[in-house]
C-alpha cells in the first residue's frame, strides 16, 4: 500500500512540533527555519495551515531537473533529492507550482520532503492529528465520514 501525508488544517494549533521534528530528522537540530514542512498562520482569520510536498506522481521538479538529481523512491513514492548530484541550479524550485522544494544557501543544494524514508516525523510528532500518514487511496475517507454523519436518514 502506498501512503501519503494527509493534512487537515482544521485540526492544527500552530505548535510547530512538526517543524521541529522535521528539522531534527534532516538537520540534527531543532530548527524550524530549516524545516521542509511549514505551518502558516493566518492570524486574523484564526487559521493554521501546514503545508509541504505532496509527492506528485509526475513531479514537476523531477522532470525539470537537468541533471536528474531528483529521483523516485519506489518504496514510498517520495521524490528524493540526491545531494551529490544536485548542482544547485534551482530550476526545480521554478518548476514546482507549490513552492515546496527550496534552495538551501548554506549547502548550495535544494531540499524537499522525502517522507523521512517512509516514517515521516511530522506526522509522528503532531499532537492533534492534523498531519497523518495514511493510505494514499483513501485520504478523503475522513471527510466522507464527516459528511456522511450529517446525512439525515431519519425520514428515509
Amino acid at each position: 500500500m502506498q501512503k501519503s501525508l494527509h493534512i487537515d488544517p482544521g485540526k492544527c494549533t500552530g505548535c510547530l512540533q512538526c517543524e521541529s521534528a522535521c528539522s531534527l530528522e534532516n538537520e540534527g537540530l531543532f530548527n524550524p527555519a530549516k524545516s521542509r514542512i511549514k505551518v502558516f498562520t493566518f492570524h486574523e482569520e484564526g487559521r493554521f495551515v501546514p503545508y509541504t510536498c505532496t509527492q506528485c506522481d509526475e513531479a514537476w521538479c523531477m522532470q525539470a531537473c537537468p541533471v536528474d538529481a531528483i529521483t523516485l523512491n519506489p518504496e514510498n513514492g517520495s521524490k528524493d533529492v540526491n545531494a551529490d548530484v544536485c548542482v544547485g541550479c534551482k530550476v526545480c524550485t521554478i518548476a514546482c507550482p507549490f513552492g515546496t522544494i527550496n534552495y538551501n544557501a548554506s549547502t548550495g543544494k535544494v531540499v524537499k520532503c522525502d517522507l523521512c524514508g517512509g516514517d515521516p516525523q511530522c506526522a509522528e510528532s503532531c499532537p492533534t492529528g492534523a498531519i497523518t500518514y495514511i493510505d494514499s487511496d483513501a485520504t478523503g475517507l475522513d471527510k466522507m465520514r464527516a459528511w456522511a454523519s450529517k446525512t439525515d436518514n431519519a425520514g428515509a
Partner: peptide
C-alpha cells in the same frame, strides 16, 4: 479555534 505556543501539545490559547 484554539492555538498553541511554540512546541505546546496542550494548546490552551483562544482565538
Amino acid at each position: 479555534t484554539n492555538g498553541a505556543c511554540f512546541s505546546c501539545t496542550i494548546a490552551c490559547g483562544r482565538i
